[in-house]
């Protein structure tokens, strides 16, 4: 663990190096890509990126919870959550198999 963090700006830079477009255009394309990814997760409930993994949205039922500070019982509404499932190929690469 090196403690480094890859951010969107660095990804934009990596793409910028490979095109003739200016940085603002590349940033726009990356934002569009993220928008399409979010839409796919919402609409299809799944986004599969081969060699990387799969983002899946699933429904969580409403459940009773408690506010730990006030001890009040509250009903948590049903909601959608996203999980990432790792591809076998990427799992093998991460573990040098």
């Amino acid at each position: 663990m090196s403690g480094k963090t890859l951010t969107k700006a660095e990804i934009v830079d990596a793409i910028y190096e490979k095109t003739d477009r200016n940085r603002a255009e590349v940033k726009g394309v990356v934002e569009s890509l993220l928008g399409i990814m979010k839409q796919a997760i919402k609409k299809d409930h799944a986004l599969l990126i081969s060699g990387f993994g799969k983002f899946e949205a699933y429904d969580k039922k409403a459940r009773k919870g408690r506010n730990p500070q006030t001890d009040e019982t509250i009903t948590l509404p049903p909601r959608k959550v996203v999980v990432f499932r790792l591809s076998r190929k990427f799992r093998a690469e991460l573990n040098d198999e």
Binding site: S2, G3, K4, T5, L6, T7, K8, I11, L34, E93
Partner: peptide, 8 residues
Amino acid sequence: TDGDRVEI
């Protein structure tokens, strides 16, 4: 793979 975090 390098053990870094990714934040989008």
